[in-house]
Design a protein around this nucleic acid. Sequence first.
RNA 1: CGGGGCGUGGCGCAGCCUGGUAGCGCACCCGGCUGGGGGCCGGGCGGUCGCAGGUUCAAAUCCUGCCGCCCCGACCA
Length: 563
Amino acid sequence: MGVRASGYLLPTLKDDPADAEAISHRLLVRGGFVRILGSGLYTYLPLGWRVMQRIAAILREEMDTIAMEVSMPVLQPASLWQETGRDGIPELFKLEDNSGKRYVLAMTHEEAFTYHAAREIRSYRELPQIWYQIQIKERDEPRPRSGILRTREFLMKDAYSFDRDEDGLDASYRRHIDVYRRIFERCGLQFWMVESDTGMMGGLGAHEFMAPSPSGEDRLVLCSNCDYAANLEVARSIPRPPQFPEPLDEPREVPTPGATTIEGLAEMLGVDPAATAKAMPVVAEGEVVLALVRGDQRLHEMKTRKALQTEFRPATPEEIRESFGADPGSIGPVGGRPARVIADDSLRDGQFVSGANRTGYHLLGVQAGRDFKAEFHDLREVTDGEHCPECQTGTLRVERAIEVGNIFKLGTKYSEPLRATYLDEGGNEHPIVMGSYGIGLARIMAAAVEQSHDEHGIVWPASIAPFDAHMVVIGGGGDPQVETAVAIEHELDADGVCVLVDDRDAGPGARFADAELIGAPARITVGKRTAADSTVDVQTRRGRTQETVPVSGVAAAVRKVLE
RNA sequence: CGGGGCGUGGCGCAGCCUGGUAGCGCACCCGGCUGGGGGCCGGGCGGUCGCAGGUUCAAAUCCUGCCGCCCCGACCA
């Protein structure tokens, strides 16, 4: 059913809110879709809630093809989280009831789903199963940001699969991939499924669904040629081959006064920066570790953390002098006494220039294996223009993206501590093999705005627009076109087209501007210019093409726009 | 947690440096006009200047502390 704008809560703003940076944040606040209640806490006004409900409807339709919807509490006993050891997570909200009993606010629902699976599932005959819900999550985010993109409370579709073994999990995982693709396609998003990090805890595999957008917090690596796509955190690449000078039989020390940066060094010695080794001394668990990447590369923090299996920090100048006997800028892997040397794979072959561990000197012709020993890992950050690790020929580009969904093979990480087991054909007990699958509704909403807007406002994908059509009735009370508008409203209602009728007593310009800001796919203009010959103008929001149609054909014209 | 910025009517902002009557635009209310791109005229309502303390004859303005919000980074199970 359509609604009348007069009497509807439609608080559009003429100016951008002062504190909004991201496009989606600006347009959703200006358009009267959302309002802030506190840091990272957003209220959905009628317009915004309609969009969320449409997204939820798509999620339900698609999820219902593979899963059963349930609903579990957000307020949960802290003891449940003690069993999985997750009660110490800093982002977990903790509270007490009046008797002092401890509770948490769920940041995700693995514990609750596994708790029930442990009690209700007993036999292999009952597997596999997939359960899902659309429920609030609470996370004490250290830094909420970008409007509804990262909030402390948010709605999430979360699903959990229960299988008897890894093959079963693989099947459940693949079913989710298919369903997720359909969901994001139906929501009108441009998206990529990418390999993602399984985190410090390990895990059997994970993928993320990424919607490219400059406001996104994640970075995505894409190939120009094949379908390789990965989160920057795990992306691989083929770096360009360095131009090596003539090889030396042993390293040769050369003076390099004042050259403490790669650019300065490469220029002074006339070598390719890619033929130098950049030394990044870090401290991990109290020991100095030398991390090496090529001079033209950047050390990727998360990859380094993974290689070290622990947190680390940059070494201080004092620690560097102590371990290497030279100032920062002149250190390298030959000599010195770091506890470990880890090096990027690209340094495995060839001879590089590195610091000589003598202030103001570097070594030419330093070769891994011959001159120093190192553990090799993927440590470098992928950059634009490098070659694709899959097809070898394509070039890679790095883009920002919003993580709209993720899928994760949990294995028995939760079923073991919570004793969610089943009995197989032989009566043997096994832990249930689980997967978890999330989609952020607000992130879909924000990503849609980020990907589809113009200088006038939002251009909603038809599938999640708050209204199918926005009818602007020009003129006031006694004008004859008002009757025409009412007739059209009834026709659209009968035809199942959801229309917002702007019958407010404002000037036409202001109302056209609001229509564009709000972004319904079709705009119907009823004025005396056209009403006289029983026609109206129907304009598409996307591209703003306009046609004049007879009043009797409005519903059909709008349907055509919605296609 | 580190760095930066901002807090003055519902919204966007000026005033602060150089202390002395709290101001502008929009929105809102009343009346009228207007009616295909944020229109016009007239009349109104609305602010303990984030909070607390201090300096001063006098504080939005200077000082101290706190709180809140935004941005960058760290973090993001």
